[in-house]
Simulated scan of single mutants.
Amino acid sequence: MDFKDYYSILGVPKDADDKTIKKAYQKLAKKYHPDVNPGNKEAEEKFKEVTEAYEAIGDPEKRRKYEEVRQNYEAWQNSGGRGNYDWSRWQAQPGQGSYTRTMSPEEFAEMFGDFGLNENFNSGGGFSDFFSTLFGMGDRGQGTRYGRHTSYTQPQAGQDRELDISVSLEEAYLGTTRVLEIGGKRIEAKIPKGVRTGSKVRLAGQGNPGLGGGANGDFYLVITVKPHSAYSREGDDLTTEGSISFYRAIFGGEMQVKTLNGEVTLKIPPHTQGNTRFRLKGKGMPHLENSKHYGDLYVNARLILPDDLSKKEIDELREIAHRYHHL
């Protein structure tokens, strides 16, 4: 949901008095009035926008709340604006925040002069999610025709919410759970196998309550998989390091490799070169969409030279190297 700068919409400074705000609204409302711009959808949207702004900061009580929100939001932005701003703390409770404005004939004439609102014209036409979150649904879409107003209430879905969650690579491999407190309720959230950094786990209907009988929003867990000391990850594939002795590289043999599901045996062929990359099929991460399928595990073989050779052994190796022109 986007923040609305109502002062900017009306073109007034943030310390403008009520008279300045009213005068600015009067000027813009006349400019974008539907009777002046028949059939012009863009002008109609502008008329709704300036009307919403005037509803918010032209009313002293609403303006006080809006100022709290604006200052808090700007402080959050100035501090870096990390994550998602929590609008839920400002949400009007059901039954609060009615914003019916019924103009007297005198006020209507002052605002619009000789303009006549069509009897069926809806000046609000439905305010933004931002306005409705702060001030409630109220009498949405009030008409303003010589003290008359028509009102209706449309259901509006509640806002979605998000929470950042960190999991280990092992938890991402096996799947895990988190116990959360949401709206005074303890909820066990299941995090599926194979989640990646950036994955979102949806908890349907656990977001902010809807308004006017609308459905609740959803709650999303935004996943970050923490770095691992032994494995690097790319998609569903993992890479790890493995040490091969000098003798095993020459003669071949076996080595044990740790995976996230226990140890497996890797066969090393004779004459293995240093930095050889071995593939263990299906030993990587489970696919998020199909946990029965797995990525691969790659082992980068690192050659380890013996550090306990005797002088005689070194001389013998030197002789072999000379024989094959390696020195």
Results as ranks from 00 to 15, higher is better:
residue 246 F to Q: 13
residue 178 R to H: 06
residue 153 T to F: 02
residue 259 T to C: 00
residue 166 S to V: 12
residue 175 G to H: 05
residue 198 G to V: 07
residue 225 V to S: 09
residue 250 I to Q: 05
residue 233 R to C: 06
residue 235 G to R: 03
residue 190 K to R: 15
residue 183 G to T: 07
residue 190 K to C: 01
residue 239 T to M: 11
residue 188 E to Y: 00
residue 197 T to Y: 01
residue 203 L to V: 05
residue 169 L to F: 08
residue 256 Q to Y: 01
residue 197 T to Q: 04
residue 259 T to H: 04
residue 169 L to N: 08
residue 157 A to P: 07
residue 159 Q to A: 10
residue 231 Y to P: 06
residue 243 S to F: 13
residue 231 Y to V: 07
residue 195 V to S: 04
residue 186 R to S: 15
residue 229 S to V: 02
residue 171 E to P: 09
residue 251 F to E: 13
residue 217 G to K: 04
residue 160 D to A: 03
residue 238 L to Y: 07
residue 218 D to L: 07
residue 166 S to I: 02
residue 174 L to R: 15
residue 181 E to M: 13
residue 175 G to N: 09
residue 181 E to Q: 15
residue 176 T to K: 04
residue 214 G to K: 07
residue 187 I to R: 03
residue 205 G to F: 08
residue 203 L to Q: 05
residue 257 V to A: 04
residue 258 K to A: 11
residue 217 G to C: 11
residue 175 G to K: 06
residue 252 G to Y: 04
residue 220 Y to L: 07
residue 174 L to D: 15
residue 195 V to R: 04
residue 166 S to A: 12
residue 172 A to K: 01
residue 244 I to Y: 03
residue 259 T to V: 07
residue 177 T to C: 02
residue 235 G to H: 02
residue 250 I to W: 02
residue 152 Y to Q: 13
residue 237 D to L: 10
residue 183 G to N: 14
residue 239 T to L: 08
residue 249 A to T: 05
residue 251 F to R: 12
residue 170 E to S: 11
residue 170 E to G: 02
residue 195 V to Y: 04
residue 218 D to A: 04
residue 150 T to E: 13
residue 166 S to M: 04
residue 152 Y to L: 12
residue 205 G to D: 09
residue 179 V to D: 15
residue 158 G to E: 01
residue 154 Q to N: 13
residue 243 S to K: 14
residue 149 H to A: 10
residue 152 Y to F: 14
residue 190 K to L: 09
residue 233 R to V: 15
residue 178 R to F: 06
residue 218 D to S: 03
residue 245 S to E: 05
residue 226 K to N: 14
residue 178 R to N: 05
residue 153 T to R: 03
residue 152 Y to V: 12
residue 188 E to G: 10
residue 208 N to I: 03
residue 152 Y to M: 14
residue 247 Y to C: 00
residue 246 F to W: 15
residue 148 R to G: 13
residue 193 K to G: 02
residue 238 L to T: 06
residue 226 K to Q: 15
residue 251 F to W: 00
residue 236 D to F: 08
residue 209 P to M: 13
residue 248 R to E: 14
residue 241 E to G: 11
residue 225 V to C: 09
